[in-house]
């Protein structure tokens, strides 16, 4: 403790203890952004970071699944059409896992027809964002799923 107090303020802020306490107090939520488009991932990251989210990225469903198994985020922003593993296949695979905590799933896709939206709901998606989206839309959807 005495050692801690001898640290300068910037140094103190770098300590693990401080970071841990800071995250506990501020309670940063985590979001996994899954999209094969780099631009979309960047746009989403930018918005989410201004909403104080800790952001991780994945380029396809397979990477997303690995990421969720390693450490489940609070919410997944999920594209539909991706190479390797689609958003739908990711969702089914996620349900087949025995994760202790299931992240909220927010689809975020150009598929904006009623049939797609209904299929996503049936597959267990919590919310649905139709691209293009803006900050207000994303923010309101995160509020709706209770992650804000």
């Amino acid at each position: 403790m005495a050692r801690l107090l001898t640290l300068s303020l910037p140094a103190l802020c770098e300590t693990w203890a401080f970071q841990y306490a800071y995250d506990k107090v501020i309670w940063m939520k985590s979001c996994l952004v899954v999209d094969d488009s780099k631009v979309i991932r960047q746009v989403a990251r930018h918005i989410l970071e201004t909403l104080r989210f800790e952001v991780r990225e994945a380029c396809d469903g397979r990477q997303a699944l690995d990421s969720c198994i390693a450490s489940p985020p609070d919410v997944v922003l999920l594209d539909w059409n991706m190479p390797v593993m689609s958003g739908m296949d990711f969702l089914r695979a996620l349900h087949a896992t025995d994760l202790p905590k299931r992240p909220k799933i927010v689809f975020c896709t150009t598929e904006n027809g009623m049939a797609h939206i209904r299929a996503a709901i049936e597959a267990g998606a919590d919310e649905y964002v139709m691209k293009p989206f803006d900050r207000e839309t994303l923010e309101s959807k995160l509020q709706i799923v209770g992650i804000d």
Binding site: I117, M130, D134, S140
Partner: peptide
């Protein structure tokens, strides 16, 4: 834009 702003799916 209007419909999805605040509207649960």
């Amino acid at each position: 834009f209007e419909i999805q702003r605040g509207m649960p799916v």
